[in-house]
Simulated assay, not measured.
Amino acid sequence: MAVESFNTPSVTDLVPRQSSRRSHLLFVALQKEIVLGVLPPDQALTELDLAQRFRCSQGTVREALMQLNEEGLVIRLPNRGTHVAPCHADDARALLSVRRGVECDHLDRVVARADDRLRVALRDLLNAMRNAARDGDEYLLSVHDRAFHARLFDAAELPLVAPILTRCLIHNHRFKILNSRPNRALEETAERHVPILAALDSRDVVRLRSVLAHHIATIVDFGPDLTGGPAS
């Protein structure tokens, strides 16, 4: 499998690019396999094996693995190699708690800055989620879902905080996918964003905070609230 053919452009173009085209393609391909569990937690990864598999240089692999390490999806340790990061419930609870604080504590800023351009962008992302769900593409649905929440938070204009949310989102989705098998409720996942849009349209900060907190807390059906706090 050549490096240019890892993923369709519709996916690779959606994931923010921070490196050369070749390493970005590999980064997206490996991110997808880790999020979907094709590469399971704790699996060892070697630059040579990946370079042979994807028919690219070890330098390209190294750059992609460095990006995955920054996302926390792999762990690279001197003299111990690279392994896919674990995916434990305790980490998931902590990240969900952080995410809820980031997204819900600044909604007054979001509502104050919300305009038609934001609403159109969010509706476009919702429709993209619906299309991915109907196609049965769980990873593409995840990409659009994460973009929806990141775009909503962008309105708060807190750029130093945004990378924290980005990291929480990727790990939240990975945990959900790996622990919701068999996961066939893809269309339901997309429709869960409708109440968020409705609350934003009403410019009701209290309602939006309640709806969004419930949305985050119930991302995985392990009970009413994985974070231990009020779900609604």
Rank of each mutant, 00 (worst) to 15 (best):
A2N: 14
F6T: 09
F27N: 06
V28L: 04
I34V: 14
V35C: 10
D42G: 03
Q43G: 03
L50N: 05
C56L: 08
R62V: 04
R62H: 10
A64S: 11
Q67N: 02
N69C: 04
E71Q: 11
G72H: 02
R76M: 14
H83K: 12
V84E: 08
A92V: 04
V102A: 10
V102N: 12
D108A: 11
V111A: 01
D116M: 08
R119L: 13
R123C: 08
L125F: 02
L125H: 06
L126D: 03
M129V: 01
R130W: 02
N131L: 09
G136E: 01
Y139V: 00
L140W: 00
R146F: 03
R151W: 01
A155I: 04
E157C: 11
V161E: 11
R167F: 08
R167H: 12
I170M: 06
K176I: 11
E188H: 06
A190K: 02
H193V: 10
H193M: 07
H193F: 12
D201K: 09
V206Y: 05
R209L: 05
V211P: 03
V220K: 09
D221C: 05
D221L: 07
D221P: 01
D225H: 12
D225T: 13
D225A: 15
T227R: 15
P230A: 11
